[in-house]
Amino acid sequence: MRPVGLVRGAWLVLKKDWQLEWRTRARLTATVFFSLSTLLLFSFAMGPGIDVLRAHAPGYLWLGILFASILSLGESFRVEAENQSLTGLLLAPVDARSIFLGKVLGNATLLFALGLLLLPVTVALYDVDLTRNPGLLLLALGLGCLGIAAPGTVYSAMSSNARARDVMLPLLLFPVLVPMLLAAVSATKFALMKDVQEQLPSWLKLLTAFDLIYLSVGFLVFPRVVEDD
């Protein structure tokens, strides 16, 4: 028997995360309803004017995803901490960097699926037009979710072991996500609405750069975070 390589290890960790999500889908459903109710609350907070709501729909969508990500990222490492499974994975053995890649992709796919569910809801609540540029809209959604997951995975691995972990994760994560949020909201906006100045490609590039930077930094730093040196 030969232990697995980097990519195969990441794939097995990812598959395991999917299995876990599927077996605990009741919790998944709860997360979905949580973000649905945030979207609903935004429309109450902003009043019934549909023009205002439509104009700000991308912002609400991303805030809904962002708030839900705190729950799902926290959960992602709570299951690893329960029986010290994370240590178990390291000893199994899996390269810590594989765990990082697998966990990031697992968290990103979860958020992406959530985003896909929320898109039709934004049509119902805010009357947006999804058909204008659906391909780039999905790309923006995917890149944005990856952008939350990459730093989020590192922070969640740390904060799951700290006291007051429910407060720690957003406190650490939100400042870092400011550029990602700006870029994702702008990209979504220009994919949904008229893009006079052709700004969409530049925001997508910024999102991609953000993802690449945090994937590489996380890839380097994550082993030091989870290995008990």
């Binding site: 590192v154 922070y155 700290a162 007051a164 720690m168 400042p175 910024l206 930077i213």
Partner: peptide, 30 residues
């Protein structure tokens, strides 16, 4: 909020790097 001194040192170092990296991106994007 992190009790174990060794873990605190390692983790806060990681947090510092992740936070610092975002500064130029924040500046640029804003």
């Amino acid at each position: 909020f992190t009790e174990d001194p060794e873990r605190r040192a390692t983790w806060s170092a990681a947090a510092s790097i992740l936070g610092y990296v975002s500064l130029p991106i924040v500046w640029f994007s804003v």
